[in-house]
């Protein structure tokens, strides 16, 4: 299946000219973006600028209408053979997603399972790993996100911040190569934002490759290697966090930042 051979030196994510429309509305108008291994990239921009849609395209929750996204040596959603793209079956798409963790704005924990069961479900039933290994890993991850005592709790008995930390642990329990965060703190009460950002910061330090859609400029400045500003379906500006946030070149970036900071 491997198309490129020098996969380890290549960027982990390469998006080329990604386009996406919802009916007559073109949401992504050609996105080119590369994310290196171990890099943390923050996507910022006003709502409706297409950053969440792009993130969902990366693990094929949305089908793209044009362009190409590669993760390592594979094309997302397709097999590339010669000059033809063969659409993957649903099961192949699912298999590819096991390498990519995703964290949602509204947590989307399974409410009928305990925190521990939430973590263990996919490794057990999708990766078919032995229960003992999975349980040990899940408990360790819960401890890492500061919820060692909440393994047996159901999501509705956890605060929003705790739920989101469980959701992050759930994604990590699949041992992904890439983590996607879709506005992970936007649905949280302000006093709970910090605990989630702290977990993400710790994760970034371990060398995880992360793409984070966020409105938290402080987090972007402190943690991101690179900040990408999107506007109206295009990337307007990208660069090191410090320079984009404190010294934006583009008029629109300046307007956006002065509104959120």
């Amino acid at each position: 299946m491997s198309v490129e051979t020098n996969a380890d030196t290549m960027p982990l994510v390469r998006a080329e000219g990604v386009r996406k429309s919802f009916g007559p509305l073109e949401v992504l108008k050609g996105i080119d973006l590369e994310v290196e291994r171990g890099e943390v990239v923050c996507l910022i921009g006003a709502s409706g600028s297409g950053k969440s849609t792009f993130l969902r395209c990366v693990n094929h929750l949305e089908k793209i209408d044009g362009g190409l996204i590669r993760i390592a040596d594979r094309v997302v959603g397709y097999h590339l053979k010669g000059d033809k793209l063969y659409e993957q079956s649903h099961n192949e798409v699912c298999a590819a997603r096991t390498d990519i963790g995703m964290v949602f704005q509204h947590f989307n924990l399974f409410p009928h399972m305990t925190a521990l069961e939430n973590l263990m479900e996919a490794p057990l039933r999708v990766l078919k790993q032995p229960r003992k290994t999975v349980e040990a890993r899940a408990l360790k991850l819960l401890e890492q996100v500061g919820l060692a005592g909440k393994a047996k709790s159901y999501p509705r008995h956890l605060s929003g911040g705790q739920q989101q930390r469980v959701a992050i642990a759930r994604a990590l329990c699949m041992e992904p190569k890439l983590m996607l965060f879709d506005e992970p703190t936007s649905a949280l009460d302000p006093e709970l934002v910090g605990e989630v950002l702290r977990v993400m910061k710790d994760l970034a330090r371990t060398g995880m490759t992360m793409i984070v859609v966020t409105h938290e400029m402080g987090f972007a400045r402190d943690v991101a290697d690179r900040v990408v500003f999107m506007h109206d379906g295009r990337i307007l500006e990208e660069g090191p966090a410090e320079s984009v946030i404190t010294n934006p070149r583009h008029e629109r970036t300046r307007a956006f930042l002065s509104a959120v900071l």
């Binding site: 997603r97 949602f104 399974f110 999708v126």
Partner: peptide, 23 residues
């Protein structure tokens, strides 16, 4: 059942039948 549940299951790589029966 909230659409987000199916999405979360899909993002974890759970195929359709597994998502239906377990989630």
């Amino acid at each position: 059942v909230d659409q987000g549940q199916t999405e979360a299951a899909g993002a974890l790589g759970m195929p359709r039948l597994l998502t239906l029966s377990r989630v």
